[in-house]
Design a protein around this nucleic acid. Structure first.
Lengths: 225, 225
DNA sequence: TCAAAAGTGTTGTGCATACACCCATGC
DNA sequence: GCATGGGTGTATGCACAACACTTTTGA
């Protein structure tokens, strides 16, 4: 290496944190998981995504998992790294570098029910969040939109079995636009990423719908849209 | 938030670092910038990508810029965040969380010339690197490959003006496969991401080639391949 | 006139889009 | 028999892949 640069006396000046932008469909709406933030005097009763400090003996991924568990009572879910936010003044209390994650939760999952401090909030009614969390949510949504077009990660927002109409509705929610039913079915079946479960869904006074399941739980890239 | 977790007595246990995987075409080969790593007794005379500690008053992006400047004498270049590596034992000396970046350098750029500690190394002859740097390089290459297919970032590997054959050769180097000349030209021109500069390149006993330039310096997403 | 790279079009095939009606069920 | 969502096919145009020869220049 060329030359040594002046080093700060204390090289451990920063705190490492992680934040998780968790999406989930709730009552037909694409929602994000928020928790109350109270870091007086800077943020009083604001909302923010779930996050917290990384511990000395855990990776940021493990930390994200632990924080979801302890702060929102959520078990395991699909997660991927999103972006690392390192603005010097992103936390008014001091230097905090946060590794943001994208998380996807199934509708069946229950989190923070009964708690006043944890809520699923529709993206169409997103408040001003603490810190740079609005930016994180925007980035998470952008990433989700991109990735459902070429991977099978939507499965993490769906139950084990689902109808094609439900799958299409989910794509439409995430992409925020209508899709053609026949073309959607052709495309999604052509990828072979889903297959018929063999079971039918009977519900109400309607023709029963075939229930499908994902062929592989591993994240795969396939051209869908 | 639900409950408080036990916090470590010193929450500032970690060091934040950044590493930059810089690609550049050198003599027709796709190369990556490496520097000598000597962290006795763990790594003696190994190679690794350029990196170092983030300072208290800089973002990781600024830090990457500074480190490239001071360690390799490189000015500004295109950079984007790649991934944050946080394995607990990725650095044998202690906990270091590193935010890796992807960098692209033009062939005209000179770095570390004359230094024994800085080298551009062909990807086809990549040695065992220090830390988790092989993983970083692999991830950087994967990202570059994906992104040249749908953005105009190749421009950062090219001089201001270039011929279509040079552009195609670059795509072939990065993707490591041959492309059809006529189809390549049609596709790349259809995106309108490049345009004729109006100048011709005369060289040797050959038909002169039209020189092209990028229409926009901003990173844009366009369907290319 | 030769060597070396630049430049250029057509055709077939498959894929995407647009679009509307019948089906199965429970009440 | 009606209301509700489930399920299906075709025609058209567009995009992509495969493919080979002529042009321009300097030596």
């Amino acid at each position: 290496m060329a030359k040594n640069v002046a080093r700060p006396k204390n090289i451990r000046f920063a705190v490492i944190a992680t934040d998780i932008v968790v999406f989930r469909i709730v009552a037909g709406e694409l929602c994000v998981l928020l928790g109350k933030v109270n870091t007086s005097p800077y943020f009083i009763n604001r909302w923010g995504v779930i996050g917290g400090l990384v511990l000395p003996k855990e990776t940021v991924e493990k930390s994200a998992e632990r924080l979801l568990q302890t702060k929102a009572g959520i078990g395991s879910m699909y997660k991927e790294q999103l972006y690392t936010f390192s603005s010097v003044d992103r936390d008014p209390r001091g230097r905090v570098v946060s590794v943001a994650h994208l998380g996807l939760a199934k509708e069946s999952l229950r989190a923070g029910e009964g708690s006043m401090d944890i809520r699923w909030v529709s993206l169409r009614a997103l408040p001003d969040l603490a810190y740079d969390h609005n930016e994180m949510v925007a980035m998470g949504l952008e990433r989700l939109r991109a990735r459902i077009g070429y991977t099978n990660i939507v499965q993490h927002l769906l139950p084990e079995t689902f109808t094609l109409s439900e799958l299409q509705a989910l794509y439409e929610k995430v992409l925020n636009r209508k899709l053609d039913k026949r073309n959607f079915r052709k495309k999604v079946l052509k990828t072979r990423m889903i297959r018929k479960s063999g079971i039918m869904k009977k519900e109400g006074a309607m023709r029963p719908a075939a229930l499908y399941e994902f062929a592989s739980k591993a994240v795969k890239t396939v051209q869908i849209l």
